[in-house]
Nucleic acid binder design. Structure first.
Lengths: 162, 162
DNA sequence: CCGTTTCTATTGTATATACAATTATTAATA
DNA sequence: TATTAATAATTGTATATACAATAGAAACGG
C-alpha cells in the first residue's frame, strides 16, 4: 500500500535535550498515524498535567472526580465507559482517590458505587478551573473553532476503527 | 471560556465489557481534547500492537529497529528525537532489543552507537510488512487520503503547542 | 431449589513511559 | 593548563495503563 519505509529520512542534527527539540512533524515517522497519534497524545497529556498540578491530581484522576461529582454513586464500569479506560484501570484510579479521601466506595451486592466525599465535592470549582486553564492554554495556539473541528475529526476516525 | 462542565451528560446504560462498548464520541467528555487525543491514541496503539504481534515486538520497539536498520550507528539521542520519546525511554527500548539480540550498542566516548545485528537486519522485510498491515488495517475504515489529511492536521496542532 | 452461566469488580502481574539524579566524556573559558 | 560548564547516556524510581485470572453476586433454566 503505502511505501512507508521509502519515506524514511533521518533529520540531522540531533541534540539530546530532555524535551525533544525536534518537532514531531520533522520526524522520520511523520507520516505514520501510530507515531503521530501517540506524539500528539503525549504532548496534550503533558499540557494537561501542568493544568491539573494545582489540585495535585493527574488529569485522569481529575476527570474521574468530576464525573462522580456530577453523578454521585456512579459505578466503576460506567466510569470506565465514560473515560474509555478498562475497569481495572478505573479501580486503580479510584483506589488512589479513596486514599486521598476524595471519594468513597460502597459495595452492595456485585455493584459498587462511588461517591465524592465532602472534601471531594468542595474541590469541584477548582477542578472546573483546571479544565478552563487547560482549554485556555491550547486555545492560545489554535483557535477554539479549529480545535472543535479537530476533536470532531478525531472522533470520526476513532469511531470507524471498530 | 468553554463551559465544559455544562456539557456533562451521563449516557446510560453502561455495561462492563472489557473493551468499552461505548464509543468515545458518546462519552461525557467527548468535547475534551485531552480525552479525545488519549482515547484515539489508545485505539491506534491497540491496532498497532495487533499488527506487530507477528514479529513479537511492540510498535515502539519495531519502529526503533526500523530506524537503526535504515541508519546503522544512530545514537540514542537522535532516536529519541525521531520517536519523540525521552532518552531514558529509548535506553529502555534499546535494552530490550539488545536482550533479544536484535541490536548491539558500542560505546565510544560519551556517544553510543546502535547497530542492528544480522538477525535484526534479516527482520527488516517483516517489519515493513507489519507497517503495511497496520496501514491497511485502518485504511479499511478511513480512506488513505482522509488519513493523510488527519495526520497533517494533528501535526499542525502539535506543532503549535510549543 | 440447585447448578450453571453471566456480570461486576478487583487483584496479580507486566509494560511503556517519564522525571530526577548520576556518570562519563568533551568543550569552553579564565 | 586547570577548572568549569555542557552534553550524552544511563539508572533509580514512579506512574498510568492493560490483560488475564479470580471472587462474589445475580440471573436463569431445568
Amino acid at each position: 500500500m503505502i511505501p512507508f519505509f521509502a519515506l524514511l529520512k533521518i533529520n540531522q542534527p540531533c541534540n539530546n535535550a530532555v524535551i525533544p527539540y525536534m518537532k514531531a512533524s520533522e520526524s522520520t515517522f511523520r507520516n505514520c498515524l501510530y507515531f503521530t497519534a501517540n506524539a500528539l497524545a503525549r504532548k496534550v497529556e503533558k499540557m494537561a498535567i501542568e493544568s491539573w498540578k494545582s489540585v495535585g491530581l493527574s488529569p485522569s484522576h481529575g476527570y474521574l472526580l468530576m464525573l462522580v461529582n456530577k453523578e454521585p454513586g456512579l459505578q466503576p464500569g460506567c466510569i470506565a465507559d465514560n473515560l474509555q479506560l478498562t475497569p481495572s484501570t478505573v479501580t486503580r484510579l479510584i483506589e488512589k482517590l479513596e486514599a486521598m479521601k476524595l471519594v468513597v466506595r460502597t459495595s452492595g451486592g456485585k455493584a459498587t458505587n462511588v461517591y465524592p466525599t465532602p472534601v471531594g465535592k468542595k474541590l469541584l470549582p477548582q477542578l472546573k478551573q483546571c479544565v478552563d486553564d487547560f482549554n485556555r492554554s491550547y486555545s492560545n495556539f489554535i483557535g477554539k473553532e479549529e480545535c472543535s473541528r479537530m476533536v470532531e475529526n478525531m472522533h470520526k476516525l476513532a469511531d470507524k476503527m471498530t
